[in-house]
């Protein structure tokens, strides 16, 4: 679209003066959001029109303002319409305590109404605010966890160790091991479902002169598509292994149930 031609087409005047069709209006508003020079030209014409109207202003009748005020104040004090005719916000005829008293009653009613209205609105806002905060916190937790995992995976100190499947049914598993911070992330895919009293267990194994010393790095459930386990204490390991153990196993590994294993050094 040629924006210069569009600006000069009379659409601005037509829009501002309220003569444009519904479709023209919608198009114009979209173009205004996209072309700053169109918006500038619109504002310029509006300003021109305003100045013109201001120059040709005519003083309205003096009592107009007062009538408008009482019309505005009617809707929410219609149940006190008997006294409303005294016009609460003007002290025009405030001669004597009677008027003052009546005015203060109305002011109190008005204040009460507004307080009530604000209280309700405030309560609603508070509620939606709390909900938003809770959501934000949940998102933060998720994002922080993802960032942490991402950091480990991308860290040059991180070694990836594939844990070879030792049984046909064993899942495909990798360990991301950061030797400098001793963090271990275990990434396991497609872990087969196992009996509910059983759990998978990840071990780090240290080869101490031919004697294998296993240390548990944590238990996790089967049947999940993807698991990431974070372990903080695995500075030294010669191998990682996964076994199937009884749920909550506190003893050593059952090597008969060795599912996966991978050495850290070849």
């Amino acid at each position: 679209m040629n924006i210069k031609e569009y600006i000069a087409s009379g659409i601005i005047e037509s829009y501002v003066l309220g003569l444009a069709s519904e479709q023209e209006r919608m198009e114009f508003e979209q173009h205004c959001a996209r072309y700053p020079e169109l918006l500038d030209a619109r504002i310029k014409f509006e300003q021109l029109l305003e100045n013109q109207a201001m120059e040709h202003a005519e003083a309205p009748p003096v009592d107009s303002k007062e009538k408008i005020w009482s019309a505005i104040q009617q809707p929410w004090s219609s149940n006190t319409s008997k006294i409303i005719t005294m016009e609460p916000t003007t002290t025009r005829r405030s001669s004597g305590m009677r008027w003052v008293a009546a005015a203060s009653v109305i002011l109190m009613l008005a204040a009460g109404y507004f307080a009530f209205d604000y209280y309700n609105k405030n309560k609603e806002l508070q509620k939606s605010n709390d909900e938003m905060n809770a959501r934000l916190n949940r998102m933060d937790t998720v994002i922080n966890k993802m960032k942490e995992e991402q950091a480990v995976i991308q860290n040059p100190n991180t070694t990836v160790i594939n844990l070879a499947a030792l049984k046909e049914s064993a899942p495909s598993a990798s360990v991301y091991w950061d030797t400098t911070s001793a963090s271990v992330y275990l990434l396991v895919r497609n872990m087969p479902q196992i009996a509910s009293e059983k759990q998978y267990q990840l071990w780090s194994i240290i080869d101490s002169a031919g004697k294998l010393q296993p240390t548990s790095l944590g238990l996790f459930d089967g049947g999940q598509e993807k698991v990431m386990v974070k372990v903080n204490d695995a500075q030294k390991a010669d191998a990682f292994a996964i076994t199937i153990e009884k749920r909550g196993n506190a003893g050593g590994p059952d090597l008969q149930q060795l599912q996966n294993m991978g050495k850290t050094k070849l």
Partner: peptide
């Protein structure tokens, strides 16, 4: 109000 009154008028 003056400008609008002029417009209405």
């Amino acid at each position: 109000s003056g400008a609008l009154y002029g417009v209405i008028h």
